[in-house]
Every structure is written in C-alpha cells, then in structure tokens.
C-alpha cells in the first residue's frame, strides 16, 4: 500500500538553512547537507528545500547546494523558491533535484506549468499554492503570501492539474504558524476534485494534527518545519503513532 509521506521543509538563504534548527549532536545546523542526511536517517520520506531569498545573483550558490545534497542524500527532494524558467529547472534537475516547486511564477505565467510538464514530465512539477480563506472563500496569494489575488484556490488547483502539475503543495495562510492543525476541509475538497497527490502545509503542531490531515484532510503527504527542526515532534514517534491509528506509513 502506498504510504503517507512526512516531509520536513528547510528554508534556505544563500545555500544555508535559516530557520532555527535545534537537533542534538549536529556539527553545523546551518548546513543543509548535514540536516538533510539527519532527516533521511530519522525516517523522513522526502525533503523540501525552499530558497526564501532567491535572486539571480545567488542562483549558483543554490545549485551548488542542490548538487551537494544530491551527492549525499538517499531520499527524494524538491527545490522551490524563485523558479520561473525552463532553463533554471533544467539546471536544478541536472544537479540532482528530483522535483521543483513553482508558485508565483505559475500564476504570473500559467504556461510555465505546461512547458515544465512537457519537457521534464509531470512527476517533477510541484505547484505550490498559498491561499487564505476570506469570508468563506479561498483566495490564492503570491510572493510568500504577501500579495492577494482574485484567483480562487479550487479553480487554480484544477487548472494546474490540467496543465500538467504532478502534485500540489497547498499552504493555508490561515493555519500557517498557528500550530493549530492543517486546513483539512479545504485539503479534503482538493483531493475530491483533483486526481494528483496533495501535500498539506501550514498548521502542524501535534502528532494528532498529522493523523487528522491524513484521515479527515485526505492528504497524501504532510509538510512541516519548526515542529521537526526543534525536535518537538520526532519523526519516528510520529510515524509509530500514525501506524497505531492505521494510517499507512513507512517504518
């Protein structure tokens, strides 16, 4: 049976991890390679690296980081942040990234999704969507959630699936940072209207939140950052509890 995936997300700036990370026995918690290896050993199913300060100038630094991660890490990983062209994706994949995640650039130029899917295959195209629920309706936001649009979440999700996205990474801005649980109602609706995998993001605070997003939210994967980085939720413990609740996981 296909298992539900647990996905730690690492924020990257100039090739270094930025969000506070508090693992025991880490020589260099700012080194993405060290962290990624640690997560792979602890049982993470895949990893996401988000370049939060991506510019044209530091693109080389990120590519270098991707190459080093690919060299040493034996589980799949996605790279996102500031990706807006086919040639940039080509470079990332050639450095060993398994998937890329695009967000604002897809909204600005939806054909990018088609171009990437045609050239590299849907399996490596993740479309990340940040959305906020305003008076009952979910609206897509851009640039890390800072710019609102009039695009509706479910319309946009459907469109990117048709354009060839292989997966959707949905972050609820209402839930992100709250540690109050994932946006399960919206997630479940996404799973109902789409036929591609959905990664839940935003709101993880407890083990039960993960269980809920896999059952009530019908999510295929769950992404989180701080609860993993600060050791609040050890991945092994999380997976053991999920298994107890009859949620299929890799243990």
């Amino acid at each position: 049976m296909l298992t539900k995936r647990i996905v730690p997300c690492l924020d990257i700036k100039n090739g270094r991890t930025v969000k506070g990370v508090n693992f025991v026995n880490l020589i260099d918690a700012g080194d993405p390679v060290v962290l990624a290896k640690q997560y792979a050993d602890l049982g993470a199913d895949e990893l996401v690296f988000l370049d939060i300060a991506a510019t044209l100038e530091n693109r080389g630094t990120t590519l270098d980081m991707v190459l080093k991660v690919a060299e040493q890490v034996n589980i799949p990983f996605t790279v996102g942040g500031g990706i807006s062209s086919v040639e940039h994706v080509d470079k990332l994949l050639k450095c060993g990234a398994d998937k890329v995640s695009i967000n604002s650039s897809a909204v600005k130029r939806p054909d990018l999704v088609n171009e990437l899917a045609e050239k590299f295959g849907s399996q490596c195209v993740v479309v990340a969507i940040d959305a906020k629920q305003i008076e009952g309706e979910w609206f897509v936001h851009l640039a890390g959630g800072t710019i609102p649009t009039e695009i509706k979440l479910f319309d946009w999700a459907k469109e990117v699936e048709e354009r060839g996205a292989g997966e959707i990474l949905f972050t609820s801005m209402n839930h992100d940072g709250t540690k109050g649980g994932f946006a399960n109602e919206a997630l479940a609706h996404l799973s109902e209207i789409l036929n591609i995998p959905i990664i839940a993001s935003g709101g993880a605070g407890t083990i039960q939140h993960f269980a809920d997003t896999f059952t009530k939210g019908k999510s295929d994967a769950a992404l989180a950052a701080s609860v993993f980085h600060f050791g609040e939720i050890p991945i092994k413990e999380l997976k053991e509890e999920l298994k107890k609740q009859n949620i299929p996981v890799r243990l």
Partner: peptide
C-alpha cells in the same frame, strides 16, 4: 485508472 491518484508518488512495498 482514475480510481487512484496518478502519478503514484511515494513509498510502497
């Protein structure tokens, strides 16, 4: 078929 999510993505036995 559309009875399952496509692609199958992740860890299976």
């Amino acid at each position: 078929s559309n009875a399952v999510k496509v692609p199958q993505m992740g860890w299976n036995v």
